[in-house]
Amino acid sequence: MTIYLVSSNANSAFACHLLAGEIRRRGEDCFTVSRLEQQRLTPYPAETLVADVPLTANEFLNSPLIHQANALGVFINAADLEKFTTIYRQICRQLDKQPAPIFSGPTFPLVGDALVSDLMSRQCADLLIVHGERQVEEAAAMTFNWSNPFPKVMTGGLWFMPERPAIGQLSGVKTVKTPHTLVVLAQNSAPILKGAKLDLYRHLWTWAERSPEWKIMIQMDHRREEPSAWTKDERENKPENLIFSSQEQLLEVIGRCSVCMTVSSPWIYSAMAWGRPSVIIGDYGIRSDQGNQAFIGSGSMHNLDHFKTLDDLLKIKRTNSYWLNSMGWGIHNGPQRLLDSLNHLQHASS
């Protein structure tokens, strides 16, 4: 089977890079397709964003390579997906060729309104890959009793991230090593309340002063703009142990941390899955537009005021394992499940 994975931003390009590796390990041909305008200063190593086929989705539609595909994984903006599939199927009709099945899905785990919105935009695909049983259940509820056909929805696990941290970073439960590092996954879009980013920054500042033996690393989970969208005066007079970490090494930083913290960055799933104490900052409320409703049952949502010093963070309970498994961590053979589903689709269409 020859599979092309098309992506249009750094998040989906990185996820496709990982998925392509897993598919190749299972003996199938798999190629990534993307041409990102910016490959530097993202959270991911630049080399992982270099695609096998450096074309945009639209350019790929015009390339003869697309007709070699037995399956197409299209992880572009949900809004652009329908256009892509319509044009691709139209071209195949014109050329009297059987279109390859198209699979798609959100890069990161979603729940509630966000999941409904995403899946509705992707219903033109032949197969939808979501993360865990929670998403499959929600999709089933969304389509309850529908007479309109809806693509099969399958679980692929947390396929956007490596299953394990880098070599040497695996650590058992209760073996958080000193000196300690708190990694704060900083987002562009959250917290959304006016002044809240600055408030969070002040909180980190206070902690840094109170716990000089700790290092606090603020790691952007998005491409870092200059000057940063996060704070305007990030480098002036701050404590030495409060650091804005370099880009292109997000997973390395998470793998090394003692505690990981965020408002709603999906990369907290990596910290949780790798057994790092994790905190979802609940101080700014649970809001649909803040993307943190998915974490309601995680057991990791706290008020920062509960932690006077950073050592207090080491006492928190681990993430609710039932919740984490239902969000995708319980599925460890996602790529194989994907291949099985694609084979099934091919047999059904032939």
């Binding site: 309340l193 809240a196 408030d199 057991g299 706290h302 005021d305 609710n320």
Partner: peptide, 24 residues
């Protein structure tokens, strides 16, 4: 319960911040 924060358990400061957002 610790770790299972919900909106109805927002702190004083959080309520003030949300009120300011609503005023905005």
């Amino acid at each position: 319960p610790a770790g299972y924060l919900i909106n109805s358990s927002l702190s004083f400061t959080q309520l003030r911040r949300n009120a300011e957002a609503a005023i905005d």
